[in-house]
């Protein structure tokens, strides 16, 4: 059976109590003070929701969603909406930065038809039949009072899933166990594939490319220079990230990216700056020639679409030659 998909995390559980404007403001303040990353959903009616996306305590973006349209709100607009609309059903959803990116992505996606699934077994069949190996996909799941997102990256990498119910918020690598055990009602599932017109798909691809470029450079640097200089590079990059208020670090030779921007341009600019800094340090040790040839090798292995993306977003700094 095919049905229309409601907005993610929009269901209002009977146990939810309506919050006053003061309580909403208190929650926003507490998110700010604790530098919380996550999502706050304000439901003004079952079909009218304001979503605030928090990154380390600050509102990064906001969306107002009704059955007819999805509207991105400016800082002034969401403040105004909260002031004017009054009480709302309030749901704080703490998430990882990647979880936040997926939530935002799910709200920018449209057009997919939902399929109704009756049992958890059918859900795993749905995952297997609808997702593709060479392309990332986002599966949105809605039950009566709970919802989930499962992101399947390309190349059979570990999926990432989010499950939100009235009592639980799960934001984990892998397919959450919550999707194996549901009994309460039928599940509506829909799957989305990359669409270059969707800004957050672009941000995801930039994030992925950033890791795809950075990790092999770091691995090669360690092979050439050893553990001590790698540690030294890690320390310098930590200082750099801290000076630029970035939550990106290097751990066990790989990149840990806890950043989210909700803007492909800002993401590209940040990644470009970070890569530039890494390259500067690597170049001082292994030399610009070897660094350029390492980068060429890495870029050559990438799919054509990724190469185009590197060019269009100027992800690699000036002076580094690549085809």
């Amino acid at each position: 059976m095919i049905v229309a998909m409601p907005a993610i995390f929009s269901a209002i559980h009977p146990s939810e109590e309506i919050a006053s404007m003061f309580e909403i403001q208190t929650l926003i303040d507490s998110f700010h003070e604790s530098r919380q990353t996550g999502l706050v959903r304000l439901a003004y009616s079952p079909t009218e929701n304001l979503y605030l996306f928090f990154k380390r305590g600050d509102v990064l973006a906001s969306s107002f969603i009704t059955p007819d349209h999805t509207q991105a709100f400016t800082h002034a607009q969401w403040r105004e909406k909260i002031q004017s609309a009054g009480d709302a059903y309030l749901k704080p959803i703490p998430l990882s930065s990647f979880g936040l990116l997926l939530s935002g992505l799910s709200m920018q996606l449209q057009g997919a038809q939902a399929e109704e699934l009756s049992t958890p077994e059918k859900l795993s069949g749905f995952f297997n039949s609808k997702t593709r190996v060479m392309e990332p996909s986002l599966v949105q799941l809605n039950w009566r009072y709970s919802a989930g997102l499962v992101f399947f990256p390309e190349r059979k990498d570990t999926p990432h899933s989010i499950y939100v119910s009235s009592e639980t918020v799960l934001d984990v690598d892998g397919v959450s166990y919550a999707f194996d055990e549901w009994e309460d009602s039928k599940c509506e599932a829909s799957v989305y594939f990359p669409d270059s017109s969707v800004e957050l798909w672009q941000e995801y691809r930039l994030r992925r490319l950033f890791a795809d470029i950075c990790s092999p450079v770091l691995a090669r640097f360690e092979v050439l220079t050893g553990h001590a200089l790698m540690e030294s590079l890690v320390r310098l990059m930590m200082i750099f990230a801290s000076n630029h208020d970035l939550d990106i670090s290097i751990s066990s030779r790989s990149l840990v990216n806890r950043e989210v921007f909700f803007s492909a341009e800002i993401a590209a600019s940040t990644y470009r700056t970070f890569l530039s800094e890494i390259f500067e340090h690597c170049s001082a040790v292994i030399g610009p020639r070897l660094l350029a040839s390492t980068l060429r090798e890495i870029v050559t292995e990438l799919p054509a679409a990724d190469k185009d993306m590197i060019k269009s977003y100027r992800l690699l700094p000036k002076g580094i030659f690549y085809d």
């Binding site: 220079t225 170049s283 001082a284 040790v285 292994i286 030399g287 610009p288 020639r289 070897l290």
Partner: peptide, 10 residues
């Protein structure tokens, strides 16, 4: 020396 040119490893 040519490969590492400009870098400390040369």
């Amino acid at each position: 020396v040519f490969i590492f040119r400009g870098g400390a490893l040369m």
